[in-house]
């Protein structure tokens, strides 16, 4: 960071100013002129928080996608189906057992098993044939989507969060100041979304630690860089592939439960989240966990801000960001140049 500041003093200044302006926008009560021009601060904050929590959800889906891609060069276009499958199974488990938390390990195991079968019986037989793997994953997503439509029907499901997590939570961010008493009013936000954000950060940190501080992570990173050399040095790479695929699939499944709690599940959500993770990964860079996190936040916030301030064109903003990244940095913000 110091090196960057030394090499680009002007850019550092611009970035610092932007950060300060952003912090001021978030933390300070807005003057009346700004509220008149842009709208209530509460609306802005809600859009921002909504964007960040949506970004957290996108991150959970996209990190598995990007890991699988980075290691195996498999574009698993059935990833969205795994998300939706996890959400449906989570709903069934949560309503049957009455425990929301129990759904997570169950879904991780079940969807992880589906991923295991996909990798073991299909993708591992066509290693190196990237296009064919992608086509197969498209076929799988068609089949899975129709099977799920068959079993769960077209209606939408919402998984109920446990009582502990329900209700609003007051955040230490000023929403507005009461003009008569001068008292500060703090923003209130659904507790479950805050906890989801916290959980995503914890999972992200854990993934980062595993990847960067353990020997398993070392093997995976080595595989991302050069898997032939890794296999030649005696690592049983098929097992590593299986483990990463199962983990990525299980993570997508757990993200499905969160998606079902946070919004709702219905046919079509699979493509929505597949596309979200595609865009996140394109923006953030293939195979990079940190890139997925940054991309997810950017896309999530853009989507929510767009929905609030320019509803007709919200999709276009997301797309423009993707186009801009592709035009200036085709490998993504943090992608390794290949």
């Amino acid at each position: 960071m110091e090196k960057f500041a030394k090499n680009h003093p002007l850019w550092t200044l611009v970035i610092a100013l932007l950060v300060v302006a952003f912090l001021w926008l978030v933390l300070a009560p807005w003057p009346a002129e700004l509220e008149a021009a842009v709208g209530r601060k509460r609306v802005f904050l809600n859009a921002l928080l909504g964007g960040v929590t949506l970004g957290a959800l996108y991150f959970l889906v996209a990190s598995g996608f990007t890991l699988i891609f980075g290691l195996m060069r498999t574009v698993n276009l059935a990833h969205g189906s795994l998300f939706l499958l996890g959400g449906y199974i989570g709903y069934e488990v949560a309503t049957y057992s009455g425990s929301w938390l129990l759904a997570f390990p169950v879904v991780f195991v079940v969807v992880g098993l589906v991923g295991l079968m996909m990798q073991r019986f299909i993708f591992s037989h066509m290693e190196g044939e990237e296009l064919r793997q992608t086509l197969v994953s498209i076929g799988l997503s068609i089949v899975l989507a129709d099977l799920m439509l068959w079993y769960w029907g077209g209606q939408s499901y919402t998984t109920l969060a446990p009582a502990l997590l329900r209700g609003p939570l007051e955040l230490p961010i000023i929403s507005s100041i009461n003009p008569t008493s001068g008292e500060a009013i703090y923003i209130r936000y659904p507790a479950v979304r805050v906890w989801i954000l916290v959980a995503a950060i914890v999972i992200g940190l854990a993934m980062w630690l595993v990847l960067n501080r353990t020997s398993l992570g070392m093997v995976i990173r080595a595989g991302v860089d050069d898997r032939e050399m890794l296999a030649a040095s005696g690592v049983r790479i098929q097992l590593v592939f299986l483990a990463v695929f199962v983990f990525g699939a299980g993570l997508a499944g757990m993200a499905g439960i969160i998606g079902g709690t946070f919004q709702s599940l219905s046919p079509g959500e699979d493509t929505r989240f597949l596309l979200a993770s595609l865009v996140v990964v394109i923006v953030g860079g293939m195979g990079s966990i940190v890139g997925a996190a940054i991309g997810a936040i950017i896309i999530g916030v853009t989507e929510q801000m767009g929905l609030v301030y320019a509803p007709t064109y919200s999709v276009v903003f997301t797309f423009l960001i993707m186009a801009a990244v592709l035009a200036f940095r085709p490998q993504g913000l943090l992608g390794a140049g290949r």
């Binding site: 992608t134 596309l275 394109i282 007709t312 999709v315 993707m322 592709l326």
Partner: peptide, 28 residues
């Protein structure tokens, strides 16, 4: 835009553009 990338990336990018166009026509 798509030819700035190769192979499977092209599928992903064109799919994303197609989806953006679909949602745009639905919202506009």
């Amino acid at each position: 835009l798509a030819v700035r990338t190769e192979g499977i990336y092209t599928i992903m990018i064109t799919l994303a553009i197609a989806a953006a166009f679909f949602y745009f026509t639905r919202q506009n």
